[in-house]
């Protein structure tokens, strides 16, 4: 195959019809607060673990909404509570994290 020195980016299309949103639905019931998230990213900006692992609460919520795997990010959380302190929507992110960690089903 000819080497052009560049490649096509893989598709980043999210097919919500095919995505497995069962976890999102469950968490939504447990933590209705989550729906008020406006993805401002304050949580990610302050995250203690983010610096070392790419943990970002904003991305976790986005991942849940898209049905992608979020366990890798959550396994680095230190539960320090900074995200809760800065959340402009007053979401109890610490409890949200614990709920996801409890409800998550290993694939």
């Amino acid at each position: 195959m000819m080497e052009f020195g560049f490649r096509l980016s893989p598709s980043s299309t999210i097919d919500l019809d095919r995505a497995d949103l069962s976890l999102y639905r469950k968490i939504e019931r447990l933590e209705p607060d989550m729906k008020t998230c406006m993805a401002c990213g304050s949580c990610s900006a302050t995250c203690t673990a983010g610096q070392y692992s790419g943990m970002s609460m904003r991305k976790v919520i986005l991942g849940l909404q898209r049905g992608t795997d979020v366990s890798g990010m959550l396994s680095c959380c230190m539960l320090c509570g900074k995200c809760t302190m800065v959340c402009p929507r007053g979401i109890n992110t610490r409890h949200l994290i614990l709920s996801i960690c409890r409800t998550y089903e290993k694939k």
Binding site: C76, C101, R102, Y104
Partner: peptide, 11 residues
């Protein structure tokens, strides 16, 4: 019991 356990060995 949590399905996701935290692990900081990568830090």
């Amino acid at each position: 019991r949590y399905s996701i356990e935290q692990d900081y060995s990568g830090i």
